[in-house]
Design a protein around this nucleic acid. Structure first.
Ligand code: ZN
Ligand code: ZN
Ligand code: ZN
Ligand code: ZN
Lengths: 137, 137
DNA sequence: ACTGATATGTTATTAAGTTACATCAGTTGC
DNA sequence: GCAACTGATGTAACTTAATAACATATCAGT
């Protein structure tokens, strides 16, 4: 039970469900500690409860970690099966995150890796800036 | 004094010089706290001394922050002037980091941004995996 | 019921980064 | 010289992020 193919929403444990729902209904990314606070009423007491659930959810592909924020978002395409390379555009004013994939970038990464004998396991692409909405206000 | 054009190595302060030298002579990326430990003998006592120097060095383009590691590396091309988009390949076994730039990726990012009214300020590209050396050993 | 594997609860600790405030050194204007 | 300003530094306390260690609980398969 370690990948999205064999694990669906139905098989999530109680804690995983609580954490995923918190992320899914949030407007933007949440830090692990923010999630913890939101789940105090559901019995959460310690960071590890959140981190353990997040680890699995990331593993399942249902949640992504934003490295430049130390925060987590629910996947915007939870039913698309296995993603290729995913990029995130993060608005520094309103916190909104857009998730998209880009085959050209993926090819470039693969190309550099092949040329340099590097074997990639995970690629992070995060664009920080301001979203259209914030620029027009 | 906020960009690489008007600031050279000569104008670094004592603390900035110490931090930069620590990074420059390191084999791989260092966390702020690791740098602090290395500089205890030079009088460093508090994290802020390191973070302040790092902020400036990053500003000058002489040091890069690796978001997925919460760590810092000296720029591999410190004399190339202003960089465009930079990508990092990070070996998870030996810690070695390769820095390279890629115009195609930069174009793709610009393209997505233009199409979505997003104004990018900084783009992070970090490839985690294993380097050639580690794969052949 | 026994066993192994996974999930959970709890406490304490380490690592990363910031706030607030005091001091010091150089520079500009008088 | 001296006030006033600016940027750099020192220090303590604190918040936030993540992990280690250990105890329990749940459940499937036999
Ligand atoms: Zn996704
Ligand atoms: Zn915005
Ligand atoms: Zn560089
Ligand atoms: Zn390596």
């Amino acid at each position: 039970m370690t990948n999205r193919e064999t694990t669906t929403r139905e098989t999530l444990t109680r804690n995983q469900t609580l954490v995923f729902d918190a992320l899914a209904k949030a407007a933007g990314p949440l830090s692990a500690y923010t999630i913890l606070d939101k789940l105090r009423d559901d019995g959460f007491r310690a960071p590890l409860q959140v981190y353990r659930a997040l680890d699995k959810l990331v593993d399942f592909g249902m949640v992504h970690r934003l490295e430049s924020l130390n925060a987590f978002v629910a996947c915007a395409h939870p039913h698309c099966g296995q993603h290729g390379l995913i990029a995130f555009a993060i608005c520094e004013k309103c916190g909104h995150v857009s998730e998209f994939s880009n085959d050209v970038i993926e090819d470039q990464v693969r190309g550099w890796a092949a040329a340099n004998g590097f074997k990639p396991s995970k690629t992070t692409v995060e664009i920080r800036g301001n979203c259209a909405k914030c620029l027009n206000s």
